[in-house]
Amino acid sequence: MNPIYVGVDVGASRTKVAVLDLSKRLIGYSIKKSGTDFSKTAAECLKTSLEMAGCTEADMVGTVSTGYGRMNVLFARETKSEIGCHAKGSYLYFPMAITIIDIGGQDNKVIKLDENGRRTGFKMNRKCAAGTGAFLEEMAFRLDIPLDEMSVLASRSTNMVKLGSFCTVFSATEVLENIRNGKKVEDIVKGVFFSMIQRVLEMDSLTENVVMTGGVVENNPYMVSMAEELIGRKILVSEHPQLAGAIGAALYAMDLFPAPSREL
């Protein structure tokens, strides 16, 4: 047996699975669209990530699920909140007092940890998509630009167009108005990113060390550069920021379900 721990993060937009070995090394992972059948997607992600890790289900010592669809993961033995999982998954790579900014598909979180990795507070966005991945998707749709090209486009901007509204729908109207007024697409896209970061930064104050996680961050590195410019310091980003929640869930599994060898 090759003992492994599995974390499953079923988000509103994407499902992520992370496989850790006993040394907490990420040895397998998978990311898929969550779709409408969370159980099926989670099972598919598990299969892919186990293949990547060269393991089988028999090797799984413990599994924890998190995210909005956490209750739909049939093979998980326990559930944890995504706040806790993002905290744990981030602290693994940055073991110090940190503020985590997670930009997810439909919600944002700001989580504060002390130097021991204990949560001292957290905030989620209000019931509104402003500043989330859903906002970015809507803007990409309005601008008729593939989502994965937004980051590169924004980096080419020389004259950012600021969007004034809090609201995703009103922002879309502003985007159309700017297009009509002949503004350059890259300048509008930069304004879209700027708006997202502003929404997140107004959620809570930041401590010295800031970590960013989430799919939006993984797919749009420009956003991190812009956030760094805005807060005036370097932001910490792990190798797989989108997997922070899933990795955290696997770490919870490690705490909850000791490997057979550990019990001896």
């Binding site: 944890k80 909140s81 995504e82 806790g84 204990r118 949560r119």
Partner: peptide, 22 residues
């Protein structure tokens, strides 16, 4: 209409987790 049940649940669960850890 001004309430998100899922978000409320996540917030409260995470808060109790935080208390548990502390």
């Amino acid at each position: 209409r001004l309430l998100s049940d899922e978000q409320t649940k996540t917030n409260i669960e995470a808060f109790i987790e935080q208390l548990e850890e502390s």
